[in-house]
Each structure stands twice: as structure tokens, then as C-alpha cells.
């Protein structure tokens, strides 16, 4: 860990100004990702700008409807919040699927969105990695690839996004408020996270100095049921092999509306637009769900270690939608 300076600015604007002015500066929020990376040597900042006490850490209703989540809201508090549990059980479940109780108590909403990949080669400074050191190559492409992406990857990077919360927010059409050196702007999900292309070092569309200050969530339509299902190599405290965030409205046996996002498959939370389109208006049956999921995974590209992922994704999507359709309204 390279020595670094530490700063506690008086407000968010000052924090943005400080980080924007120093290419070697970075923000510190909950620290659960950054401190890990500092110790691994993945991130070697010259200045840490601590966001402690600078950002909202609560959930409130917005005047025109919807929820506004302060970027500093810890994952645990967000998952337990009554408004989230009532309106977006999928989001609460996604948060509770992630990490552990201790980590959720520290990890922030903004930080979770910017969580970096768990690719083992990204985390090993001795291994070439385009995401960590652009131009060095991708070790995962021909390496151990159980977690590798199967959708939207490039020959430069096959890493997957590790956040569960971000998958749910991607399904829920969340919007992120960003404070940058040029002022405030809104970035929608999907849209925040990038596919790797030939710039895998860029996880998101944010620029240096940009700071997430809040996440906004539109209210769900009446009759929506939602769920999050995470499939992983142990029963808890593990990253997803595949995860599914699904929201479903069924009327008269047909799908009236569906929101579907997938985790563990791509460099970004994967909004399953193709499946959503196929399903809207279709009969709410397991066959239709499976067909739609297959269509979504049709372009999947796999290697020997992750060849199971498309089938697992199809099975999981089918199971989640089938169970939602079978559930009574609530």
C-alpha cells in the first residue's frame, strides 16, 4: 500500500472539487471494497477523500412518487427499510443476498453500485489484466473461468459485475444522481455500467471526480410481484454464478408487465430486454418463461469452465418467473 494523504472535506461539493483536482485521489465511503483493493495493491491512490457524514444516509419518499435513497445509506439499513420491503421486495432480497451482515452494515448504496469485479486475475497484481493495467492482456480469457462473463464480453475482458443490489436496481429502472465537477446530472440504470469493449478499465460511464449522491426509484405498478434469486457455490456469503431480479404483473393468465435483470453473466448487470419483449402479452407459463430466457441467452459465449452458465441462467429465470406467477398478489 503506497502512502496516501487523507482528507475530510466539509461537504460533498468540496469533496468533488478535491478529487476532481487530483488524478491520484479517490473517494472513501464504506471502505469494504476500497480497503480490500488498497491492501491488494490494485488501487494505489495518493489521496483518500473521506465521504463520512457528507452524504444522505436515509430513504425518503419523493414528492412526485418514488423513493430517494441517500448514497451513504448502508446496505443493511436499505434492506430493512419498511418502504423498500413493501414496494421493492426484490431490492431488499438482493441486498440481503450480498456479502454478510457485517459487510452490509458498512457498505454504502453508492459504493455498492461501484463495486469492482471479483475476477481472480484482476485481484492478483502479478497477473496481466486489462482492467487493472490497460494493455497488459486478459488472463481470465484462457484461464480459470468459472465466473467469467457469457454475455457482452470482449476479447479484452471477461469479468463480471459482482453486485447483487445493482442487478435489482437495473431491473427497477433506478436513476442515479451524480455530482460532478460540472454540476449535478442523472444517469439511468441500465446505463451506468458499461460493457468492457476495448476499455475494460472503465466499469461505468462516470468520470474521475463524479460522485453518486443518491439513487431514485420509481414506484412499482399495482399488482407487481418481485423477487431476487441468487445461485452460488455455497448457501450464503458467496458471489453469484447467476442471479435473477424479476418483477412480474400477470392479468388473466397473461404477462402484463415484466422487468428482468441478470447478474453473474456480464460486465454489467444485464437487463434482459429481449426476454421482456418476448414475454409481454405472452401466457404466464413455464414454457413461455423458458423460451424467453433461452432467447435472452442465445448469444451467450462460453468456455470450458463456465459452459453451464447459460443453462443455469435459463433454469433460474424460468423458476423465478414460474414461482412469481404462481404466487398470490401482494
Amino acid at each position: 500500500m503506497r502512502p496516501f494523504a487523507y482528507s475530510r472535506p466539509r461537504d460533498a461539493a468540496a469533496a468533488v472539487a478535491e478529487v476532481s483536482a487530483d488524478p491520484e485521489a479517490c473517494y472513501l465511503a464504506g471502505g469494504t471494497n476500497l480497503v480490500d483493493h488498497l491492501r491488494l495493491g490494485i488501487t494505489r491512490p495518493g489521496l483518500l477523500v473521506d465521504l463520512r457524514d457528507l452524504l444522505d444516509d436515509g430513504v425518503e419518499e419523493m414528492p412526485g412518487g418514488g423513493l430517494r435513497i441517500g448514497a451513504a445509506t448502508p446496505n443493511s439499513d436499505l434492506a430493512a427499510h419498511p418502504l423498500v420491503r413493501r414496494r421493492h421486495p426484490m431490492l431488499s432480497a438482493a441486498l440481503l443476498s450480498g456479502a454478510s451482515g457485517q459487510l452490509r452494515n458498512a457498505a454504502s448504496t453508492g459504493g455498492n453500485l461501484l463495486q469492482r469485479t471479483r475476477c481472480a486475475y484482476f485481484r492478483d497484481t502479478a497477473a496481466p489484466c486489462n482492467k487493472r493495467e490497460p494493455g497488459t492482456g486478459c488472463s481470465a480469457l484462457e484461464g480459470h473461468g468459472r465466473h467469467n462473463a457469457v454475455l457482452g464480453a470482449s476479447r479484452h475482458c471477461v469479468a463480471v459485475h459482482p453486485s447483487d443490489m445493482a442487478v435489482a436496481l437495473t431491473a427497477l429502472d433506478a436513476r442515479v444522481r451524480v455530482l460532478g465537477p460540472g454540476g449535478e446530472r442523472v444517469v439511468p440504470l441500465p446505463g451506468l455500467h458499461r460493457l468492457p469493449g476495448d476499455e475494460p478499465h472503465r466499469d461505468t460511464v462516470l468520470e474521475h471526480g463524479d460522485l453518486i449522491t443518491a439513487v431514485e426509484l420509481p414506484d412499482p405498478p399495482r399488482g407487481r410481484r418481485s423477487a431476487y434469486r441468487k445461485v452460488r457455490d455455497r448457501a450464503s456469503y458467496a458471489f453469484a454464478l447467476v442471479s435473477v431480479a424479476a418483477a412480474l404483473e400477470v392479468a388473466d393468465g397473461r404477462v402484463r408487465g415484466v422487468r428482468l435483470a441478470l447478474g453473474g453473466l456480464a460486465h454489467a448487470p444485464w437487463r434482459a430486454r429481449r426476454a421482456e419483449e418476448a414475454l409481454t402479452g405472452a401466457p404466464a407459463t413455464a414454457d413461455a418463461f423458458r423460451e424467453a430466457a433461452r432467447a435472452e441467452l442465445a448469444d451467450a459465449r462460453t468456455g470450458p469452465d463456465n459452459a453451464f452458465k447459460p443453462a443455469l441462467a435459463v433454469a433460474t429465470v424460468t423458476a423465478v418467473l414460474r414461482d412469481l406467477a404462481a404466487r398470490g398478489d401482494r
Partner: peptide, 13 residues
Amino acid sequence: GRRILSCLALAVS
């Protein structure tokens, strides 16, 4: 009063 992992917390913070 909240359980956290002290290894992923910086003392200065």
C-alpha cells in the same frame, strides 16, 4: 453497536 469487519475499516476514518 453495529457489527462490522475491522479489517476493511481504516483507523483514520
